[in-house]
Design a binder for these strands. Structure first.
Length: 597
RNA sequence: GGUCUCGUAGCUCAGUUGGAUAGAGCAACAGCCUUCUAAGCUGUGGGUCCCAGGUUCGAAUCCUGGCGGGAUCACCA
């Protein structure tokens, strides 16, 4: 049993013994004592006043006496207003830090037969254009949340859903057919996703020209959009695709494979992966059959033109399209099918969708539609909605060319890391190979940390200039601290100092060091909270705070200048425990830590 | 207009189930490299926690209303 629950239990006993009352465990608030006060844990006594019927100070004192007598770990206590501050004995903290020293997976929980299976979908790219900054946030979040859930004893299945069909795919296919001149990624010496993305842009440009021409001839804007020859051709192509026209399918397969090969490169760079990849081209038909099912059950209705809808006015929403009048499927159609397919494949307890908040409405509808169809697992769907990534100059707009391409961004981060290392002369003694590796770790660490430290649900500003500032609350700062501790270990080996596997309870411990130990003590709670909230940001900020605490300690107490052997060993030992937690926390964020930098 | 969401220092962000005097970093200024990596550390200045009510012993946090930004309400995905 951990110390906090022990304290809570004893407080309940105390209230029972002293005031003859039975308090609800929820009213007992044990929290960490704030830095500026003396003590380790604080009991807030205000909620208990109605039971004691005494002043806050008197109540706190009586409870303090009781606790001190009945909990052996408590050394002393003090009362300030309604706060009872308890000081825990040093030996408790030393026992604790020794237990961390013997534990290679501190804070982690093993999966067992009672584990829940959680499926997490992330990335979900369209095969008509390359990944951009928004996808980076998505991928990093998805991967990290999966890691975090795993660390807390869940079985996790990471899935990707490739949006490989639809009108948007036909647009780039059509543009390639018309203006592609049989170009391939090899011929153009370009990543496949970038090549295809170019044709998507080309389509849009030509389409706009056509619209303008029609408008100039007197057509309305709306009519022009609907009747431009290019869009009609694209629609025709989609119908052919759904009818399995061999020529269209062949082109589709060719171009999709180019794009997917390109994505694989980017995923590898980012360090993300999947256990299973779903393709909408494989699930949309199941979606269509679910629509049929809904029509039979009377959940959906058909309009005169043949399109299928659901009326959600009773839910406070609108009418929603499920199938086009020409019988082709839309986004919602295929998502219905995909969801069903997943619960057939894996018997998941929870299905988490990592998708931007611009789709909040979509997921609200998806959930309602599935439960109206009678699927009880609709309750297991959870939309992990994240905010947009903006640039300092404003929003990203593909039309205005202000989209930050994922590959360009990664490359930029790495080359900036290289320039900075060069300038500081940090990597002068390393081989080109080693340099490349370290610089990549730092560049990606900077990017990943910058994005993950922000609360997922918030819109965030990504400032490329600020992100390459390697000072402050950044990934490289944390990596640097880790690297320095590794350097300590090497130094100890040089000096033939054997690092202890545990420390004696005779050692003198400073207030600062005690604070560091208490900080490490909260790590399991932090992980638990991060898992509950699907929030890597909680871990990121914790690790940063830990590193900051450690750096202060490190500067005040140069370890090898310590003459007392026990103290020296203790500090070395403590440093290693800190570096273990840094490594573990960063690992959950998907960030590597270098041994030297 | 309806729904959702965000609003904390000049800027980027933390702030635990409501707890004590609201915190970091960047930027500015002033210091610290014969001692384990100065990509660091120390110090100074910087706040109407958007506004107004309400609940509470106690509100940045919860509720209501307003103001401001964003998203969404497509036969796009």
């Amino acid at each position: 049993m951990n110390i906090e629950s022990k304290l809570i239990e004893t407080v309940i006993e105390a209230v029972h013994d002293i005031y003859d009352q039975a308090p609800d465990a929820k009213t007992i608030q044990i929290q960490k004592t704030r830095k500026d006060f003396e003590g380790d844990f604080t009991l807030v006594v205000f909620p208990l006043l109605r039971m004691s019927k005494k002043s806050p100070e008197q109540t706190a004192t009586e409870l303090g006496d009781y606790l001190q007598q009945n909990v052996k770990e408590i050394n002393s206590y003090n009362v300030i207003k309604g706060f009872l501050n308890l000081t825990i004995d040093k030996s408790f903290w030393l026992d604790f830090i020794n237990s961390v020293g013997n534990n290679n997976s501190y804070g982690f929980i093993e999966a067992d037969e009672n584990s829940r299976t959680m499926m997490i979908e992330y990335s979900s790219p369209n095969t008509n254009k390359p990944l951009h900054l928004g996808h980076i946030r998505n991928n990093l979040l998805g991967y990290s949340v999966a890691q975090i859930l795993k660390s807390q004893g869940n079985n996790v299945v990471k899935v990707n859903l490739v949006n490989d069909r639809g009108i948007h795919i036909c647009k780039s296919m059509l543009a390639w057919q018309k203006w592609g001149d049989d170009v391939t990624p090899e011929k153009a010496n370009k990543k496949g996703d970038h090549l295809v993305g170019g044709f998507y842009v080309k389509f849009d440009q030509e389409y706009k020209k056509e619209i303008k021409e029609l408008v100039d001839k007197g057509s309305t804007e709306d009519d022009a959009k609907k009747n431009a020859p290019l869009i009609l051709e694209a629609q025709e192509m989609l119908r052919k695709w759904e009818a399995k026209d061999s020529e269209v399918i062949a082109l589709w397969e060719k171009m999709n494979s180019w794009v997917l090969n390109g994505f694989d490169v980017t995923y590898k760079e980012l360090g993300v992966d999947f256990d299973k990849v779903y393709f909408e081209s494989e699930t949309y038909k199941l979606g269509k059959s679910l629509v049929e099912e809904g029509l039979e059950k009377g959940v959906f209705f058909k309009k005169e033109d043949g399109s299928v809808w659901i009326d959600l006015k009773d839910e406070g929403l609108d009418q929603k399209l499920l199938l086009r009048s020409d019988g082709t499927s839309v986004y919602m159609t295929q998502d219905l099918g995909t969801a069903r397919q997943r619960f057939t494949d894996y018997n998941a307890n929870e299905l988490i969708y990592v998708v931007g908040n611009e789709q909040n409405y979509h997921f609200q509808v998806l959930k309602i539609v599935l439960s109206k169809l009678g699927y009880s697992w609709a309750d297991y769907l959870h939309h992990l909605s994240y905010g947009m990534v903006e640039l300092p100059e404003g929003k990203m707009k593909s039309r205005e060319g202000t989209v930050v391409d994922a590959d360009d961004l990664i490359e930029g981060m790495v080359s900036t890391a290289e320039e900075m290392s060069q300038e500081l002369g940090k990597l002068d003694n390393y081989s080109a190979e080693e340099k490349k590796e370290i610089v990549k770790t730092i560049g990606l660490g900077a990017l990943k940390y910058f994005i993950l430290k922000v609360d997922p649900k918030k819109t965030m500003t990504f400032d490329p200039k600020e992100s390459i500032d390697f000072n402050g609350n950044t990934g490289p700062f944390i990596q640097y601290t880790y690297a320095r501790i590794q350097s300590l270990i090497r130094k100890a080996a040089e000096k033939d100092i054997e690092i202890p596997t545990q420390v004696s309870d005779q050692v003198e411990v400073s207030a600062k060091e005690l604070q560091l130990i208490k900080f490490l003590h909260t790590y399991p709670e932090i992980l638990n909270e991060a898992a509950k909230n699907f929030s890597p940001a909680i871990i990121a900020n914790y690790v940063y705070d830990l590193v900051k605490e450690y750096n202060q300690f490190y500067h005040d107490h140069p370890i090898f200048s310590e003459t007392d052997r026990d103290k020296l060993l203790f500090r070395l030992f403590l440093s290693i425990q800190v570096s273990k937690v840094i490594n573990s926390g960063m690992h959950l964020l998907g960030i590597n830590v270098p041994d030297r930098m």
